[in-house]
C-alpha cells in the first residue's frame, strides 16, 4: 500500500446524507473479477443526471469528496472504495462513516476523515461559492484546510499509523503466526469443520 501523508486536491461538495454503497457503485458493476478499472462505475446511477456534481467542471477533477453524514452505509462491497480510488479520490470527509466502509478504506489507502458536521457545512459553502477550491488533508496533523477554514478530523490511531507507513495487514499479522498456531491447537475438538462435507 502507498504511504499517505498529506494530499491537496479539488474538493467536491456532495450535499447528501446516507450515501449508501449501492449508490457509490451499483450491484451490476460487481460482476467483474478485477481489482481495478471501476472509475466508470462510481456513482453510475447519479452520473446519468447531467446536473450531478461530478458532471460539472471543475468538480469532475476533484480528489477530496465532502459528503453528508452516514457515508458508505449498506453493502460490504469493497468495490465502493476501489471505484472512489480509481476515479481519483484520495480522501472522503464525512461526519459519520459506516463501519465496514471505513475499514475497507483503511485497507486500500483511501483516507476516511471524520469531520464535524458544522465544519462540513462551512467547507460545503466554501466549495460551492468558490468552485475549484482545493482541500488539503494532512494526516500527520489530523487537520483539513479549505480556504480560510482549518478543521480537525478524527481517525483511529492504528489506521493512521498504517496509512502513514503504508503497511500491509497480512504481512503484519503473519509476524504472529506462531501465536495463531498455538491458538488453533487449543480449540475444542467439537468446533465445526466444513470438511469432510456432511449433508
Amino acid at each position: 500500500m502507498e504511504k499517505f501523508t498529506t494530499h491537496t486536491g479539488i474538493g467536491v461538495p456532495l450535499r447528501q446524507s446516507n450515501v449508501d454503497t449501492d449508490q457509490i457503485i451499483p450491484a451490476v458493476y460487481l460482476k467483474r473479477i478485477t481489482r481495478t478499472g471501476f472509475e466508470d462505475a462510481l456513482f453510475a446511477g447519479w452520473r446519468k443526471d447531467e446536473s450531478f456534481i461530478l458532471n460539472r467542471e471543475p468538480f469532475s477533477r476533484g480528489s477530496v469528496l465532502v459528503a453528508g453524514p452516514d457515508f458508505g452505509t449498506g453493502s460490504s462491497r469493497e468495490h465502493a472504495v476501489w471505484a472512489l480510488k480509481d476515479y481519483g479520490f484520495k480522501a472522503v470527509l464525512s461526519s459519520r462513516f459506516a463501519d465496514i466502509f471505513r475499514g475497507n478504506s483503511g485497507k486500500q489507502g483511501l483516507l476516511a476523515a471524520e469531520v464535524a458536521q458544522d465544519d462540513i457545512e462551512l467547507i460545503w459553502k466554501e466549495l460551492e461559492n468558490h468552485p475549484g477550491t482545493e482541500v488539503t488533508v494532512d494526516l500527520a496533523a489530523r487537520t483539513v484546510r479549505c480556504g480560510t477554514i482549518t478543521a480537525p478530523f478524527g481517525i483511529d490511531d492504528y489506521t493512521r499509523w498504517r496509512l502513514l507507513e503504508g503497511l500491509d495487514d497480512i504481512g503484519l499479522t503473519l509476524q504472529h503466526e506462531a501465536e495463531i498456531t498455538e491458538y488453533e491447537s487449543a480449540r475444542p475438538s467439537w468446533k465445526p469443520r466444513t470438511l469432510p462435507a456432511k449433508s
Binding site: 469493497e78 495487514d169 488453533e184
Partner: peptide, 16 residues
C-alpha cells in the same frame, strides 16, 4: 467484511 479482509482471513484465519 470487505474483500481485503476476506483475503486476510484466507491467509491467516484471523482479523485485526
Amino acid at each position: 467484511i470487505g474483500t481485503s479482509e476476506v483475503e486476510h482471513v484466507m491467509a491467516t484465519q484471523t482479523l485485526s
